[in-house]
Amino acid sequence: MKCDMHNHSIFSDGTFTPEKLVEIARESNLSAIALTDHNTILGLDRFLNAPNSSNIHLVGGIEFSTDYKGIELHILGLFIPKEFYSEIEEKVKNELKKKEQSNINLVNNLIKKGFDLTYEDIKNTTPNGNINRAVIANYMMHKGYVESVSEAFEKYLNPSNGLYTPPEKLSALDTIEYINSIGAVSVLAHPFLNLKTEDKIREFLTVAKEKGLDGMEVYYSKFSEEQTAITEKLADEFNLIKSGGSDFHGENKPEIKMGTGKCNLNIPYSVYENLKRRFSEKNK
């Protein structure tokens, strides 16, 4: 029995509907999956009520984009109680406006640099008009401006290149406290993607644990064996639940498959059980 606690739908930057995610989970022989769209819970009702003949355990979640000392960190909230949906959507509304404006500014800067593209054309490539830098990178690749998404980020979409200015974000530590306040489970997503080194991850975990951080992704599509081993060690050191997810986006990241990532994942069902147990403990 396997699970996948990090997936995206058309309600953020994935290419499949919430219902299709459940279907893919069944085809992939998964026993539990979470929907964790970026800064929105608008797909959760459809996800949790999707046809589910295999009785897969469905976890309603969200992936908050947050800031810690100028570093963008992603914090997952899992097992989001339905009574807080409206409150969460209101909480992230301003953040989404800031994000859209930063993406508009990025596209305008790319146009000034000579690229033949428009914001509307990029929006039209997505099911719900949701855009982030990965979508922009995909569009640039399909237009032939770059050979890969990673090349687009390296040459144009990284803040260090001067074309993209990240929007102001929620505080990572405040977000962890908020997730705990509503009885949900907080998980640090893909720590090596943002914090880069073991020392920086340890520094963050030291303060995040005091704020009530519940878990950390140790099984992740883009982690090396060494990075997985380090995060497992750190999870034990800080008494955190070991979580894991593919970060499945569908056709926007075709190399990543639900449940198996880049054929390097095998997330045990016990990950779901441990997260669910923490949720139950919080809501006795």
Score class of each variant (00 low, 15 high):
Glu168His: 10
His190Thr: 04
Arg202Cys: 10
Pro166Asp: 13
Lys169Pro: 04
His190Ile: 02
Glu177Gln: 12
Ser171Pro: 11
Phe192Asp: 02
Leu193Ala: 04
Ala184Thr: 13
Ala189Trp: 04
Thr165Leu: 06
Phe192Trp: 02
Lys196Leu: 14
Val187His: 06
Glu203Asn: 10
Ile179Asp: 08
Gly183Asp: 06
Leu173Ser: 00
Asn194Met: 13
Leu193Tyr: 03
Asp199Ser: 14
Pro166Asn: 13
Leu170Trp: 13
Ser181His: 03
Lys196Glu: 15
His190Ser: 05
Ser186Phe: 05
Leu193Lys: 08
Glu198Phe: 07
Glu203Tyr: 01
Asn180Tyr: 02
Pro191Gln: 05
His190Asp: 11
Asn180Thr: 00
His190Ala: 05
Lys196Cys: 04
Ser186Glu: 05
Asp199Gln: 12
Ala184Leu: 12
Phe192Ser: 01
Leu193Ser: 10
Pro191His: 06
Tyr178Arg: 09
Leu188Pro: 12
Ala184Phe: 14
Ser171His: 09
Lys169Phe: 12
Ile182Met: 15
Ala184Gly: 14
Ile176Ala: 04
Lys200Tyr: 07
Tyr178Ser: 04
Thr165Arg: 04
Ser181Glu: 01
Leu170Thr: 01
Tyr178Pro: 09
Leu170Met: 15
Leu188Cys: 09
Ile182Gly: 14
Ile176Met: 07
Ser186Cys: 08
Gly183Ile: 00
Ala184Val: 12
Ser186Pro: 12
Ala184Cys: 14
Asp199Asn: 11
Ala184His: 14
Leu195Trp: 07
Val185Met: 03
Glu198Ala: 10
Leu188Gln: 08
Tyr178Met: 13
Ile179Arg: 05
Leu173Tyr: 02
Ala184Tyr: 14
Ala172Cys: 14
Leu173Pro: 01
Val185Lys: 06
Leu170Phe: 15
Ser181Gln: 01
Tyr178Asp: 05
Ile201Trp: 10
Ala172Lys: 05
Ala184Lys: 13
Leu195Val: 03
Arg202Ile: 09
Glu177Leu: 08
Thr165Tyr: 00
Asn180Pro: 03
Pro191Met: 06
Phe192Gln: 02
Ser171Gln: 09
Pro167Val: 06
Lys200Cys: 00
His190Met: 07
Pro191Trp: 10
Lys200Ala: 13
Tyr164Trp: 03
Glu177Val: 10
Ile182Phe: 14
Leu170Gly: 00
Val185Gly: 05
Ala184Pro: 14
Thr197His: 00
Glu198Pro: 03
Ile201Tyr: 09
